[in-house]
Structures are given as C-alpha cells and as structure tokens.
C-alpha cells in the first residue's frame, strides 16, 4: 500500500513538471511583465533591478527551474500585481476562500446526485426518472456563466421586484467575522448553488447509469432470490457496489472544486483561487499565475490519488501491492 502510494506519486511528478512547464512557457512568452512594471519614468537602474529580480534575462527553461526549485521550498516569489506580497501567502489565503464554497457544494452534490441517481435507476421510466434526465440535460447544456447570471437576475432583480427583499447577496464574500452568521450564509448561497447545479447535472446521469448497471447484475438477482426485502437489496447489495465508481468521481470532483472555479468566482466576485488565476493571467503576473497553477495541479493530483486508494478500499478485488 505504502509502496503503491510512493510509486504513484513518483509517476505523477513528470506529468506535473511537463504540464507546469508548458503553462510557464506560455505565460512567459505571452506577457511582457516589463511593459507593466517598468513604465518609462522608472529609470534605467530600476529597470535593470526588475530584470535581475525576475531573472528576465535568462532563458525560459532556466527561469522555470529556478522558479520551481524555490517553489518546492514554499517560496513562490513576490506577486507584482498584488503589491509584491509573497505569492505563497496570497494563494493560501485565496484557497481558504475557495474552500468555503467547495466543501458545502461538495456535500450537496454528493447527497443530491446519489439520491437522484438511485431513485431514477430504481424507478426507471417513471416520471421522476424523466424529470432527473431532463434536469441533467438542462444542467449540462447550461453554461456556468449563464446560470450564474440568471441567478443574479432572479434573486438580485426579480425577487426584489416581487417581494421587496433580496434574500441573497449576488456579489462578494461576507464572513462571520466581518458581517455575522446570517450575512455569511446569504453571500454563500448563490455561488454554491451554481457549482452544485453544474456538477450535479452531469453526475446524476452518471450515477443513474452506475446504479442501473448494478441493478441489472446477477448478484442483485441472487439477493432477490434469497428473499431479501427490496429496500435491503438496493441499499445493501446495490448501493454498496454502485458506490465504487461514485466515490472515485467524488474524490476527483472535490479536488476540482477545491482548485476553484474561474467562472463562478468571477460572476459572484468571489476572492478565491479561480479569480486569482484569472487576475494573474490578465495582469501577466507570472509568479502569481504559476503559484495558483501549482496549487491547483497538486490538489487535482492528490485527490486523484485519493480516488485510487478509496477504490481499493471499497473494492475487495483490488489490492495495491
């Protein structure tokens, strides 16, 4: 088991390096930080200093190696677009804000997707089944930004016109410390709903398919032939097997959610990792962009590994040597 984890981590490193190198190169050649940092009146001396500070006179591979070797030690350099604060601190701070959305969204996704998936599979061709199918088709066809804007129109505009109140905040993050419990909840609802819909839509379909496959399997017939009540057949024998692919997907989703959503965070003006990435790219802030990419990639890789391990825990046929 331990050996397997080590091997998996080692085998991911080259992929991670190639991936980040590509992003580094693209970012480095696409923006010239000097155009932003060194406006005409800075003077020759400051100009030279900036070139030296960011190693801009070096070839890109060298700059990449330099950046990566200090990043591994937790030093991602200063972020010029953020008043030259340490990139690492900014990224960690924003990661916390993203997690405020990701974790509750994840729980709602897991609960609704499995409920819808199981019910629509068990009651195949029922009204509920068609409803779930329609819901997931709509959700898959609805771009995140359209849905987010729609929520803003509904709750920021129409709801106020009809009832004279705005139940939820449509922009910005409010914390317990700054605004109290109620406002915190009111500011979190819409972005969480947005994340929830987008992911639940595609997952309830997958979960339905996973459950259908299980329900039509021979061992379910065996369980029924034993005289087990239907409920027990589905919840013990069915769900336990359907969970194997589902938990894997969940782990991967959680990794993606924790990496932040560029679109959702942009629409709701949420100071998370996704927005930070967008800012870094728009400000052509190489350190910041790379810092976010590193953290996001590591999250994705870590949760993929977790997914693998959970798979082994849930399926006795799989043994990691």
């Amino acid at each position: 088991m331990f050996a397997y984890v080590v091997r998996r981590i080692l085998s991911t490193i080259p992929l991670l390096l190639v991936g980040t190198f590509i992003v580094f190169t693209l970012t480095a050649i696409s923006g010239d930080p000097l155009s932003r940092l060194a406006t005409a009146d800075v003077g020759e001396e400051a100009y030279e200093r900036i070139i030296e500070l960011y190693g801009l006179d070096q070839p890109i591979p060298i700059r990449y190696v330099n950046w990566m070797s200090s990043a591994i030690q937790g030093d991602m350099g200063p972020a010029p677009s953020q008043g030259s604060q340490p990139t690492f601190n900014i990224v960690m701070d924003r990661a916390g804000n993203t997690a405020r959305l990701a974790i509750p969204a994840f729980f709602f996704i897991a609960i609704t997707a499995i409920t819808l998936g199981v019910y629509s599979a068990v009651k195949q061709y029922s009204k509920l089944d068609y409803f779930v199918t329609g819901f997931s088709f709509l959700g898959i066809s609805l771009p995140t930004f359209v849905f987010g804007l729609l929520l803003q129109v509904i709750f920021g505009l129409w709801f106020f016109d009809w009832f004279g109140v705005r139940p939820f905040y449509v922009l910005g993050m409010r914390t317990v410390a700054s605004h109290g419990w109620l406002d915190m909840v009111r500011s979190h609802v819409l972005p969480i709903v947005t994340l929830w819909l987008v992911i639940t839509a595609s997952e309830s379909r997958f979960q339905r398919a996973a459950m259908l496959e299980v329900i039509n399997s021979d061992y379910i017939r065996t369980a029924r032939a034993k005289g087990l009540p239907r409920r027990k057949v589905i919840l013990k024998h069915g769900l336990r097997n359907a969970l194997i692919p589902l938990v894997t997907i969940w782990a991967i989703d959680l990794g993606l959610l924790l990496g932040g959503s560029v679109v959702t965070e942009t629409i709701f003006a949420w100071p998370g990792l996704g927005r930070l990435l967008l800012d870094g790219i728009f400000q052509q802030d190489l350190n910041l962009t790379m810092g976010v990419i590193m953290v996001v990639s590591l999250l994705v890789v870590a949760f993929n590994l977790l997914a693998d391990l959970l798979y082994g825990v849930l399926d006795p046929r799989i043994r990691y040597e």
Partner: peptide, 11 residues
C-alpha cells in the same frame, strides 16, 4: 444460477 462468477456479490 448459471454464472457463479457474477451471481455472488463481489464486495
């Protein structure tokens, strides 16, 4: 049943 490979619950 016919197929013992699939008739028992694997988990």
């Amino acid at each position: 049943f016919q197929d013992p490979m699939t008739a028992l619950n694997p988990v």
